[in-house]
Each structure stands twice: as structure tokens, then as C-alpha cells.
Design a protein around this nucleic acid. Structure first.
Ligand SMILES: [Mn+2]
Ligand SMILES: [Mn+2]
Ligand SMILES: [Mn+2]
Ligand SMILES: [Mn+2]
Lengths: 226, 226
DNA sequence: ACAAATTTTTAGGCTCGACTAAATTCTAGT
DNA sequence: ACTAGAATTTAGTCGAGCCTAAAAATTTGT
């Protein structure tokens, strides 16, 4: 076990694994499985096992063979640092370079690996310390702390609930482009008028306009219930 | 030989070799030597030979064993693209993130490898299409063309020559910090008052102020002779 | 011209991060 | 409690990009 105060050099691949383990770990309550990591990373389970051993060796994950993996506090801190960079770069791309919210993820995947504390702190300042990225996800501060916004999936609130659209669960290009096409954007005020028994579709009022959306759409939109 | 219209994926290492070969190729008239590349890249000559073979295979360099190496037109185009990115990022760091000119190079070495045409073109626009980087080096445009500014080393002009300081030959942190400390910056108006026979040091007038600088300093400063 | 010095390449090895195929361990269903 | 099936790990391979040591080609000096 290494001393945890210092940070070691991490390869791009190691960083991507740590980030994936963080995201998977926040979904379920159990330790993250090898297969789950392999699926997200689009690699084979055997490659995941190899990497987990390296990460374990560096004190970034807790690992017992066949028992799944979880991040150590150092691993968590590392993950939050990468996520901070990813989301700040996404804000930069949208705010300063006029990217649309469906174009930023791919480039941010590269930019998140740039190593320079001064760079990321200056970027944070340039952007006026944003708290959320273009998809409504919270941006950890320099110390890794952030507050998850109080929000609910639109598909899980009762009729007559109203609130601001504050995030998307699915950040895929196709979903985001769909939202663009239908004039749904973060910050829009949404009210649920009626929920269709038959297929779970919703009649909503959005920014004064009425429209119907499927349950699939509603279950990928977060609203900040008033 | 591959079709030259398409660009292949290039690794970070390949890009660094191409950039080094470009810079060395512009200094001398002969083909670039294996040892020269190894020295700049801080690798061993045998590693250079390996890489040159790969680059040759990809149509980026002309290579005959024992005869040195030169960039093909595809290689040159590639090099200019990387240099464009490097220098634009340096401008960004100085102009938007308040980096000083001695801090930008290291980070730009990482940023230059980010792959996104839209990113770099948007950055160019954000920066209002700068023609020179913080060290006075020209920034190639989207097509790789740029004009080398007409400039001379301060150590090579006769007494009474005056002009604007437009660049540095040595971009090392130590030299740039030295210039900061002595109040010498790009854009400053310099006039050579006297050249000391004994050691080649110069008495100059800079922005109205008189000072003496060694020949070593003068041979690393470019001025735009009026 | 030719031997010595220098440069460059080859040969063989190493680590990282992927892979396939096979073995092992865990888990669920009876 | 056993066993079929799923999940996971091990064993062995590969390419990229580096290394050292040794061989080969070129250049230099006389
Ligand atoms: Mn993203
Ligand atoms: Mn995002
Ligand atoms: Mn630079
Ligand atoms: Mn520069």
C-alpha cells in the first residue's frame, strides 16, 4: 500500500477505468462487477481483470478476486477530479465555443485527461465557477465536493406536478437531438397535465405550449419539483 | 503508398516525431538525422529507427536506411496541423486563462494532440484568428499556410538599428522569466545604441529606458527592423 | 585508399493494455 | 446438496513504443 497523499501518474486507460467504476458504483449498492465494467468500456472481461489488478496495486480500488471491485477514497478522489474536468470542459465547449450539448461529450472525453491543475482552475474561473454541466450534471469543486440537485424523473411524478427541467438521464446524441427538435431544453418549465394509463405517455405543458411525450422520453428527463 | 486525401489515426508518439522532424528539417538543408531526432525526443536512436519505419509505412516520411529522413507532403501537412493547435492553445492559455508566456508550453504539448477539427476552428474564432503565438511564432491557418515574419536576431543588426521586439528564439522558461525580470516583452521598441567589441554585449534603449544586455540574450531576441 | 570513429540499424527484450481460449469459482435451480 | 450455467480469472499471445548490446554502413582523417 502506497502513501495516499501523493498522486501518481495515471495513464489515460487507468483514468477511464476509474471513472467507469465510479459511475457504476453510484448506481448499484453492491461492488462493481467485471462484466459491467467490460461492457461500458467495450473491452473483454479478462482485460478488466488485468487492469483491476494494476489499480489495486496502486491503491485506487479494493479488490478480492471473484468479489467485485470498489473505489478506495483515493480512487474516489481521482474519479471526481476527472469528472470535474470532463464537465468543466463541456461547459467551456458550449459557453465559449458554441458547441451544442450533443457535441461536447466526445471531445470532453479527450480533454478530461489533460494534466494541469492550473489549467482546470483557470478554466473554472473563466466559466465563473459553474455548478452544473450542459446536461444538468453537477460539477465537483476543487476538493471533489458537490451537491446532487434535488430532482425527479418526469415519469415518476404525479399529475399536476410542475417544475423546471434540470437534467437528462440519457446523454446520447440521438436523445439530445430529439429534445432539440421538439423544443425541449434545460431550464424549461414543465407541468404534467395528464398521464395516459395505456402506455404511460404524458401530456405536458412546456413553456406554455402543450405536447405529448412518450414514457421513454419522460423517464430520461429530470425535473426540479417546486 | 496510401491515398493521401484521407487522414489516418495518429498516436501521440507519432505526432511528436512528425513535429520534431518538421522543426529539425526547417533548420538544416540536409535530411534529418536519426541522432538529431533522438536527442530532441530524449529517446535512443534505435527507437527512432523503429518509429521512422512506421511513419514511412504510413506515407508520412521519406526514408532510405542510413540516409536520414524528410517529411512527405502529407507529413508536412500533418506537422503544420499539430503546430497550429499547439500555438493556438498557447494563445488561449495566455489570453483567456492568464497564463504567463513561460507556463504555456508544457500544457500546449498535451493539448496539441486533442482531435477535433471543430474544436480547433472554434478556438481560432474565439481568439479572433491570431497570427502569432505568445513567443512570436507564426500560427498556420486551417490550410497550413502562414507567413514567416520579417525579423532579425538583435545580435546581428548594426548599431543604431531600431525595431519592435517580435519574438524569442529560445522559449525556455528560464529565458522567458529572465526577460520578465528585466522588463523585456514582445512589442517593446528597441534601439541598439552601442555594441561592445570585447564581449559582444549591447547597449540598448528599450521603451525609452537604457540597459545593457549580453550577446547571449541578444542572440535570442528577434526584432522587426523598421 | 583505408583504418578509425561515428552513425545507424538490427536483434532481442520489456511493459502496457488489449485479445482468445481454457480453467476456475460462484450462483441458482432443482 | 448438487450441478448447470454464468461470471471471473489465468495462461498465453500480440502490437506499440521503448530499451541495451551488437552488427553494419557511412564518414572522416591521414
Ligand atoms: Mn459527457
Ligand atoms: Mn455531461
Ligand atoms: Mn510551445
Ligand atoms: Mn510558442
Amino acid at each position: 500500500m502506497y502513501f495516499c497523499g501523493n498522486m501518481y501518474f495515471m495513464t489515460r486507460s487507468e483514468e477511464n477505468y476509474i471513472k467507469t467504476i465510479f459511475h457504476l458504483g453510484n448506481k448499484g449498492t453492491r461492488d462493481v462487477s467485471t462484466n459491467a465494467i467490460a461492457e461500458i468500456m467495450e473491452t473483454k472481461p479478462s482485460s478488466v481483470t488485468d487492469m483491476i489488478k494494476r489499480l489495486s496495486e496502486k491503491g485506487l480500488v479494493n479488490y478480492k478476486r471473484y468479489q467485485g471491485v470498489s473505489l478506495t477514497s483515493l480512487g474516489t478522489k481521482t474519479a471526481l477530479g476527472i469528472i470535474r474536468k470532463h464537465r468543466l470542459w463541456e461547459v467551456f465547449l458550449v459557453e465559449k465555443l458554441d458547441f451544442s450539448w450533443d457535441e461536447v461529450h466526445e471531445v470532453a472525453e479527450q480533454l478530461e485527461h489533460i494534466k494541469s491543475d492550473k489549467l482546470i482552475d483557470s478554466l473554472d474561473r473563466l466559466l465563473a465557477y459553474p455548478k452544473f454541466d450542459p446536461h444538468g450534471d453537477p460539477i465537483p469543486d476543487k476538493n471533489g465536493s458537490f451537491k446532487e440537485r434535488d430532482r425527479k424523473l418526469l415519469s415518476e411524478v404525479p399529475v399536476n406536478t410542475a417544475g423546471l427541467c434540470v437534467g437528462v438521464k440519457d446523454s446520447s446524441t440521438t436523445f439530445l437531438k430529439f429534445l432539440d427538435k421538439n423544443g425541449i431544453a434545460l431550464g424549461n418549465r414543465i407541468k404534467v397535465l395528464e398521464i395516459e394509463e395505456f402506455d404511460g405517455s404524458l401530456n405536458i405543458e412546456i413553456e406554455g405550449r402543450k405536447m405529448q411525450i412518450s414514457n421513454v422520453i419522460a423517464s430520461n428527463l429530470y425535473i426540479n419539483v417546486e
